[in-house]
Design a protein around this nucleic acid. Sequence first.
RNA 1: GGGGGUGUAGCUCAAUUGGUUAGAGCGCCAGCCUGUCACGCUGGAGGUUGCGAGUUCGAGUCUCGUCAUCCUCGCCA
Length: 599
Amino acid sequence: MHRYRTHTCGELRKENVHEIVKVSGWVHSVRDHGGIIFIDLRDHYGLTQIVIDPSQPFYKGVEHWRVESTICFTGQVVDRIPEAINPKLPTGDIEIVAKEMETLGESKVIPFQIAKEEECNETLRLEYRFLDLRRDSLHKNIMLRSKVISRMRELMTGEGFMEIQTPILTSSSPEGARDYLVPSRVHPGKFYALPQAPQQFKQLLMTSGFDRYFQIAPCFRDEDARADRSPGEFYQLDMEMAFATQDDVFEVNEKVLHQIFTEFSDKRVDDIPFTRIPYREAMEKYGTDKPDLRNPLVMQDATELFRDCDFKAFAGVVASGGVVKTIAAKGCAGESRKFFDDMIKFAQSVGSKGLGYLRWVDGEIQSPIAKFLSEDTLNQLKQLGGVGDGDVMFFIADKLKPASEIGAAVRDELGKRLGLIDPDVFRFCWIVDFPMYELDDEGKVEFSHNPFSMPQGGMDDLLNKDPLEILAFQYDIVCNGTELSSGAVRNHSPELMVKAFDIAGYDQSIVEEKFPALHRAFQYGAPPHAGIAPGVDRIIMLLADEPNIREVIAFPMNQKAQDLLMGAPGNVEHHQVRDLHLKIHLPKKVEEEIENGGE
RNA sequence: GGGGGUGUAGCUCAAUUGGUUAGAGCGCCAGCCUGUCACGCUGGAGGUUGCGAGUUCGAGUCUCGUCAUCCUCGCCA
């Protein structure tokens, strides 16, 4: 007989009755009836009920064993009496009558309950992550993660992709987020950086002829956390394809994502090919480049209809170059006064001066602003929104950018409040045709996304078009309002690359200095190539229906990028710092704390 | 760095307008109980109300500061 077990806690069934078995696991719950004790023994695979009779020598001891200790039981599998069958458990037809018991690992009193999943302070959960991970929901999320990643590998391999590792210690890249740096011992004053993504490596692999690369790639960015953004590190299903177009990338990703989402969720998944929305259209209709298509509401432009109207608040905005955005919401004219007041408050909370609306009720228009609008204007608005009796149109007037942002927020809020968002569906879309350049805060032309993207019109566009009019082969994949990834057809021509950087104000020497590898590699016969890198954590977050990315990461850091279990970041020995030729220069505040006996 | 929420027993929460000795459920400890499966019953221990000032006859409650944590803006090629 095996030292610890002949069966797991999830596998014994009626057909095992009479067998002598050995099982090991955690004490999930103890039900002590004085004369008889039931223990639910739990492992990764399930729960099995152990029965302990008073005649057993270890009976007295068992009373005192705490939940979450690990114990090994040897005993006989028996049928439960009919009244005692538990249909909630797969093993509920049987139980094990214990003959021997061995304690494997005793547990202290646990800081929060594991068998009962009540809400619990997250700091405590992170400090005791190993216990939190025993809890069913988190345990299941991590298993889901494992299965999804495994399936991703299968699917990618099936599509002819090769998984290739790229360096974790690499050089700092000038673009993008803040890098995590690692000081070099051998080269005083020099630093490695952890990769923000294997971007340049995968492009180099393309020039090396590997044709189709992928990797479940760790990415490191020193940026602040959000609910859907874990600080420090995250994973991407990174991929790149040689001699490939945008459509080739879309085809592979639609196949893989559709398969993963269909296989690992009960929700309906959009048919492929996924909807493609040009960036400009997305901004006009949704006010964002990551629209939640579950929400049927769209924004429309009503600027011209308000240009010469008597409603001075709006006419004034239009006269000063602003816009009026409208959202038509069908069937909500009957909502309470409070609903409309709350919507106005909401709009104000996201930076709007107000929120106008027109309600069509019983053939009349009810609205604080209707009296300022002509019959003709009202009819045109009605036609624009395609509305009728029982419907409402909301209006936001502001400069284009804030109006779009406020409109996007109002659209989301209306979707939620009116229950328009189907929780049982995954709606995907590609956002395509991103602009190559945009103006930064100082009015300077800057790359709007990835400087390695291919301008759609090639050198001709770079030479002849207004930079702000140039579109890139740059795309995002969005699911239910979550941006899963950006990708692009890459610029594989050294000449185009130099020109593209030139427009953004970077000299050729900068390209050579900052991106020496790509600049050199592309001069030795680079294949056209394209790729993308969907975020693994976010995909699993959507599949697990979790609002928080930490729920799908085994050992996440908190918002301040600390690992409360391991104590990272932590202090190191002086000699370690010395070996790295570093001097620590603490902020005044921290120094004072240490002097006051802080550490 | 800015804005917002939260902080009361080991855990989740309550405590009316500022007013008696800060309560409940779970957990823990002790006792009872031979068919439970979130077992049940009885009893008990457990509190610097995050911390520090202030206002007040009186502060869990109000004010200020500070710390922790979450959400968010900035940031995220």
